[in-house]
Design a protein around this nucleic acid. Structure first.
Lengths: 160, 160
DNA sequence: ACTATATTGTTATAATATAACATCACTACT
DNA sequence: AGTAGTGATGTTATATTATAACAATATAGT
């Protein structure tokens, strides 16, 4: 029941969050790593929307309702874990983090970032990957990690 | 006389620098923008090698031999100008800057960043661009800027 | 020469991220 | 159950990257 509705259309976002958390729990159990309450909470906060969020935004939200303010390492460590598990991606061009929309396989993603509404989607890119690998090979280069971030206007924000 | 020898092979790097500066002077004159001594100096420092350099490295080098230490805005403003003119690219994934290897046309580049020796080359990517544009179009997305950064091992550093 | 604009200098601070060590919690072993 | 070892989190401090805001200077066009 993976109802992948488009982030660009109105949808029951609670469902996105729940699905992301469920997948995360399953994957972590499967891998024998610990999705602690803190890590799960951070993942939930990352999934609050389909827009990348900054580490310090997460920090602020984490602090809401807590007796003491959370500290940066708390968030960064959780994000590091989530990235290692392929549950969250970092968007380097805007120093922000976004939930992975198809976790389960380790990958780096290719992101379409709307500069107006900030909605960001992760797209499949087998042919992009092929082009990249082939170009890299032409230069004797072996790719380990990719950062592919495309900024522009999403289908809602571009004036037709 | 554009002798584009590979950054991976031994080469007369002074020539790279000179060529970059000459092209920059030409382009700026042509466009009626001012490549001031400061901006030229920063461009020269960026071109010290084929590795991306951090803004604060440039700052340090700029300070060498100066009576007073240069300040961050000095460097960032010069870099901003150089980026606007397509003479320098920012590598977001490592917060660093590199000279554009084929200035003259505005573009965003596609970078192969060696994680071992840090040598970074900018590759042509018409087919990558095509793949990206096509993928983006499938989602109704209009690309304005791209950030394509591939980390891995260059031909010299990969063990064969 | 005079004015408008662009550039650079200067001071301060914002925003992002990590180092280092202390404490706590869980796991596995006996 | 007790305990050592590891992993996770708390805490304090600081590093790194980048920009805001305003002052001073230089340049170009009239």
């Amino acid at each position: 029941m993976t109802g992948h509705s488009s982030p660009y259309k109105p949808h029951n976002h609670e469902h996105c969050i729940k699905e992301a958390l469920n997948k995360a729990r399953f994957l972590c159990t499967d891998r024998g790593v610990r999705l602690t309450p803190l890590r799960e909470r951070v993942l939930e906060l990352v999934w609050q929307s389909h827009c990348p969020v900054g580490a310090y935004e997460i920090l602020t939200e984490l602090t809401q309702g807590a007796s003491k303010p959370a500290q940066p390492p708390t968030v960064y460590r959780a994000l590091e874990f989530l990235q290692e598990q392929g549950l969250v991606h970092r968007i380097a061009s805007i120093n922000a983090y976004i939930g992975c929309s198809h976790p389960g396989t380790r990958h780096n993603g290719c992101f379409l970032i709307c500069t107006q509404c900030r909605t960001t989607i992760e797209i499949e890119h087998s042919n992009i990957d092929q082009s990249l690998t082939s170009c890299a090979n032409d230069h004797g280069f072996t790719i380990n990690e990719t950062s592919i971030e495309l900024a522009g206007l999403c289908t809602n924000c571009r004036v037709s």
